[in-house]
């Protein structure tokens, strides 16, 4: 059986080259607008950038996937449909979609375009996945980060679609694409605008030796003088329930499933995905290189190297296997 495919993020052309050079099998990216779920300032690709990215990647036998994974705005489907049309014209290897209407459009208009289902569609069970397979010919599903490894294994046994899972990076504790927390605090949401906890609504405010981070009208965290800080992603904030301030939803940790490679292989997972289109090329290069080494070692039956040097890269300096283990729940 083939080894895992390694799917890597790129927010800029330089990051794409870093990911390709570090050993990615495929790189995923987004256009420079609200059609993708990392619509951050200064990030993402123009049409020309994508053309160059495809040329660079294909010359090195690396695939390019374009994420068009927000939900098109009612009355304004144009930008999303153009994104699909342009991705097809630019000969990308797959588009990663979430919206039913857009999947319907892509399947009808571009029958040869490979369709992947974004994690933002949050297809968490076999029946949901079969729907996307039968209705639109989706070839691969990125699984939401709510399933344990045994659940993934059972799911793979029931569907005839490739599955891709996140192995490294930021971790949504909520079912992806089904979360309006950011929208509640700021009016901007991952589903509509492609932003979660947008920087335009973030402020850092020194309070003596402490540092408070705010999002919209709400304080998301207060860091003590010696505490590592974090970006105020709403669900990674510290809140007070039952009179106790705590990381109620999720600690500021990073997913790292490197120790679970054998389990994920046994569960029938086809591709492993690294999160972080918003991160710098230094981060992407380091993480992709570490995973490339680990996958090569795993494929050759050698022990998987420790990834201690990734520790410094991750939020809070802490790593977790997240929902893959039942104890997380």
């Amino acid at each position: 059986m083939d080894g895992f495919e390694l799917i890597c993020p790129a927010g800029t052309p330089a990051a794409l080259r870093a990911a390709v050079d570090a050993g990615a099998d495929a790189v995923y990216l987004g256009f420079r607008d609200e059609t993708n779920a990392r619509n951050f300032p200064g990030l993402n690709f123009t049409r020309e950038d994508v053309a160059e990215a495809v040329a660079y990647a294909h010359a090195r036998k690396v695939e390019v996937f374009v994420a068009i994974n927000t939900y098109p705005q009612a009355g304004g489907l144009g930008p999303w449909r153009r994104a699909v049309d342009d991705a097809a014209r630019l000969k990308v290897d797959a588009v990663i979609l979430a919206d039913l209407g857009l999947l319907d459009y892509a399947a009808g208009r571009h029958p040869d375009l490979r369709l992947h289902l974004s994690v933002q569609a949050s297809a968490a069970n076999a029946d949901a996945i079969q729907l996307y397979r039968e209705a639109f010919g989706v070839r691969r599903v990125v699984l939401p980060r709510v399933l344990t490894v045994p659940e993934i294994a059972r799911l793979n046994a029931q569907v005839d679609v490739e599955t891709e899972v996140f192995v490294f990076g930021g971790l949504c504790p909520m079912a992806e694409g089904r979360c309006s927390l950011s929208s509640y605090a700021t009016g901007l949401s991952p589903n509509k605008q492609g932003v979660c906890s947008p920087a335009s609504h973030v402020r850092y405010e020194p309070r003596g030796a402490a540092l408070a981070s705010t999002l919209g009208d709400f304080t998301i965290n207060v860091f003590g003088a010696d505490e590592p800080a974090g970006y105020p992603t709403l669900c990674k904030g510290r809140f007070v329930a039952r009179d106790t301030p705590a990381y109620l939803f999720e600690e500021p940790t990073s997913l790292n499933a490197m120790d679970l490679l054998p389990d994920l292989k046994a569960a029938g997972v086809r591709a492993l995905k690294i999160e972080g289109r918003q991160r710098g090329k230094a981060y992407i290069g380091a993480v992709v290189r570490a995973y490339r080494e680990a996958l090569d070692a795993f494929a050759a039956g050698r022990p998987v190297p420790r990834s201690a040097d990734l520790q410094a890269m991750v939020e809070g300096g802490a790593q977790t296997t997240g929902a893959y283990k039942r104890a997380w729940r």
Binding site: L147, M174, A175, R178, C179, L181, T244, L248, A323, R329
Partner: peptide
């Protein structure tokens, strides 16, 4: 307004 759903139980966690 319903805002999010998770596999994790925050009530239990709290």
């Amino acid at each position: 307004a319903p805002l999010a759903i998770s596999a994790r139980c925050y009530h239990a966690r709290a």
